[in-house]
Design a binder for these strands. Structure first.
Length: 462
DNA sequence: GGAACTCGCCAC
DNA sequence: AAACGTGGCGAGTTCC
């Protein structure tokens, strides 16, 4: 099917998407209210304890003397004023408005032990106030009904609110356990999650058709391992934990930022500091994360890189190779796409939508990818919803997170639900939209019957 | 007493 | 030449 900009097909995608999402909203998610109240009580006790300890410190006493009103550890303005105006510390980083920053990384840089109390309190408050209190506020008789919006996002992605179902903690294990530990399936059911693998990378490839990228996708060859080898002068060994950490660093600190339009200087800083645990000046022996029997500083120095500037230069060369040789066709597509926008004033998505208005170069190349990737998810969501209706199943769809669908599944229907999901997401979708010229794949995660969302584990298909 | 803003931080 | 894309939301703050 060929979809034209602002087409009827595009309209129906949102129309049917709205109806399917409304059914998921209506289905809702079970929350354990007693658990929420207990956790909030215990987190409050922990936060109070940290607050008391912080207030006993010399740092706080000095802060108290420096201003009229009682210092509030949660006020970034008060903290910024005290650190950078009163104590005359040079801000390691500033905010968008030019004020000295007090975010997590910046405070860690300052090396003031008492500030750890502030950081610990912030983390627990985030969990308590945004998530647990948010669920409690929105729940009715032990059910929440998050909304999914199709009309708010510039790129034609979705958003979610009241409460936001799309930003519940996952990476931080403690925050994940506490927040997702409140969310349950229906009695006798189990939560099931299906994720598209590398969806945006694959959809990007449908636009630029870069032969090197297509080969990576078709063969399953590990692009991030290749970049890890190039950045860190190593032969990737998947059995080594330190190699896998550096592979993640290459993936999240270089490959994805470059795809989104970032450049080597930011990548160098981020890789060295956040992933490598290296200082931003000159390096000494024994610094950074372990690499084999060595440390990252020793390993890089052995390869002629002994400070952040040399590392930047190294990444500059890698970036030139990345866009000038490896993904040359991808780079040319970005250039073409940007010129198209400059000439016509819009970019079109393959799914029949048009992005207009003032766009930056990065916007013009990112929006069509982000939007069309979400539309793949939405199409699958609609079809799965129809299928469940048709079959009269007890299983329900309860939500969606950009490239993932969350089911509240009945165990008797699980096998068929998984089978049908693979069919719709990976086989039917590319048959419907012939611009999808790459294979698609999905992964499943599952919780036991009656277990909370915190108990999620990988589902291996046989 | 509410609107609008900044900042920080969670997700993809 | 320029320099990371999209959201929601709580707390603190300022303005009206």
């Amino acid at each position: 099917m060929n979809i034209h900009p602002n087409s009827l097909e595009a309209y129906y995608l949102l129309h049917n998407g709205t109806l399917a999402l409304a059914r998921a909203e209506n289905n809702g998610i079970r929350v354990d209210v007693q658990y929420l109240e207990n956790k909030i009580f215990h987190l409050t006790r922990k936060i109070d304890r940290l607050d008391r300890k912080f207030k006993e410190s010399k740092f706080y006493k000095d802060w108290e003397k420096s201003q009229e009103k009682e210092p509030n550890p949660n006020s970034s303005i008060q903290l910024s004023t005290f650190l950078y105006d009163e104590k005359k510390i040079k801000p390691p980083k500033t905010t968008a408005t030019g004020r000295g920053s007090t975010d997590k990384d910046t405070l860690a840089d300052l090396n003031i032990p008492e500030l750890n109390y502030v950081l610990d309190m912030r983390k627990l408050k985030k969990i308590r106030d945004t998530y647990l209190e948010g669920f409690l506020k929105e729940q009715v008789d032990g059910w929440i009904h998050p909304f999914f919006n199709l009309h708010l996002v510039t790129t034609y992605r979705s958003s979610s609110d009241r409460p936001n179902f799309q930003n519940i903690p996952k990476r931080d294990k403690e925050a994940m356990k506490i927040t997702r530990g409140a969310l349950y399936p229906r009695k006798g059911h189990q939560l099931l999650e299906v994720d598209y693998g590398a969806l945006e990378v694959r959809i990007a490839a449908c636009y630029h058709k870069d032969p090197v990228m297509l080969k990576y996708i078709e063969t399953g060859h590990d692009m991030h391992a290749d970049m890890m080898e190039q950045i860190f002068f190593l032969k990737y060994d998947r059995s080594k934990p330190d190699h896998n950490r550096l592979r993640s660093a290459a993936k999240n600190g270089f490959v994805f930022p470059e795809f989104y339009g970032d450049y080597y200087k930011n990548c160098a800083t981020y890789l060295a500091k956040d992933w490598g645990k290296l200082p931003l000046g000159k390096w000494k022996s024994g610094q950074g994360v372990p690499v084999g029997d060595d440390f990252l500083s020793d390993h890089l120095m052995a390869n002629g890189i002994s400070n952040i500037f040399a590392f930047e230069k190294h990444l500059k060369v890698i970036e030139q190779d990345f866009w000038g040789r490896r993904f040359k066709r991808y780079a040319r597509w970005q250039e073409r796409w940007w010129r198209q926008y400059q000439k016509e004033g819009y970019v079109d998505l393959y799914t029949g939508f048009r992005c207009q208005g003032l766009l930056s170069r990065n916007d013009a190349t990112n929006y069509p990818i982000q939007g069309a990737a979400f539309h793949c998810l939405l199409w699958s969501f609609i079809e799965l919803d129809k299928l469940i209706q048709r079959k009269g199943w007890k299983s329900r769809i309860i939500g969606q997170i950009h490239d993932a669908i969350i089911f509240d599944a009945h165990p008797d229907e699980l096998d068929e639900l998984v089978k049908e999901t693979v069919r719709i997401t990976c086989d039917e979708l590319p048959k419907t939209w012939d611009w999808i010229n790459v294979p698609l794949s999905v992964d499943f995660e599952i919780c036991d019957v009656d277990a909370s969302w915190a108990e999620k584990k990988e589902l291996v298909l046989t």
